[in-house]
Simulated scan of single mutants.
Amino acid sequence: MNYGGYSDIIVADEHFVVGIPDNLPLHAVAPLLCAGTTVFSPMKYYGLNKPGLHIAVVGLGGLRHIDVKFAKAMGMKVTVIDVDPAKKQEAVERLGADDFFLSQDQEQMEVHE
């Protein structure tokens, strides 16, 4: 194969390479890279990867999108806390969060204590 002038021969240390099974389409497989590892590693290390746990994600942006997706995939209940009411739809409908509330809303904060 030829990728924009590059040959299909790549040399890499075997400890940093993961094979992709032939039955998985390449467009459906992607590495976690830095953002995914930054989120997944501590969740697993601290035992937060168990179904039934309830996790709060503070601030929906950057890595927090990945927090929500991983937590839901692991079977956790997810509450997103943010300052922007416009993020509720994204958190609940698009990412699958179970609950959303505004950190600057005193009544909502008291209800969720």
Rank of each mutant, 00 (worst) to 15 (best):
L48F: 10
P31C: 01
K50T: 14
K50V: 15
G19C: 04
L33P: 06
F40K: 11
T37D: 13
A35R: 11
Y46E: 05
Y6K: 15
K44H: 09
G36T: 00
G47A: 09
P25N: 08
Y6G: 03
I20V: 10
Y46P: 04
H15I: 01
H15A: 14
A28N: 13
L26C: 07
C34W: 10
D8R: 09
V29H: 00
M43F: 08
A56C: 10
V29K: 02
N23I: 11
I9K: 15
K50C: 13
V18M: 01
L32G: 11
D13C: 03
S7H: 12
A30Q: 12
L53D: 07
A56H: 02
V57M: 03
P51W: 00
M43A: 11
G52Q: 06
D22N: 15
G59Y: 00
Y45I: 08
S41W: 08
L60Y: 02
G59C: 03
V18W: 00
L26R: 11
V58R: 09
A56W: 00
T38F: 11
A12V: 07
H15Q: 13
V18C: 03
L26K: 10
A12W: 00
V57Q: 06
T38R: 09
Y46C: 07
K44I: 03
V39D: 02
Y45T: 12
S7K: 13
Y6L: 14
V58S: 12
F16H: 03
A56F: 01
V17P: 00
P31A: 04
L60G: 02
E14S: 12
V39E: 04
L60S: 06
L53Y: 01
V39M: 02
E14A: 12
F16W: 02
H54M: 06
N23R: 14
I55G: 09
V29I: 05
I55L: 13
M43P: 06
A35S: 15
Y45S: 07
G52V: 03
L48K: 13
L24F: 12
P21W: 03
L60N: 02
L32C: 08
V58H: 09
Y45Q: 13
Y45E: 11
L32W: 04
L32F: 07
L48D: 05
V39I: 03
S41N: 15
V18D: 01
V39F: 00
P21E: 13
I20H: 01
P42A: 03
D22M: 09
G36S: 02
I55K: 05
V11C: 07
D8M: 11
K44A: 06
V57D: 05
A35P: 09
V17F: 01
H15C: 12
A56E: 05
L32Q: 05
G59S: 04
H27F: 11
A35M: 14
V29D: 01
I10S: 07
P21T: 05
P42Y: 04
P21K: 14
H27P: 10
H15S: 13
E14F: 03
I9S: 15
F40A: 09
L60I: 09
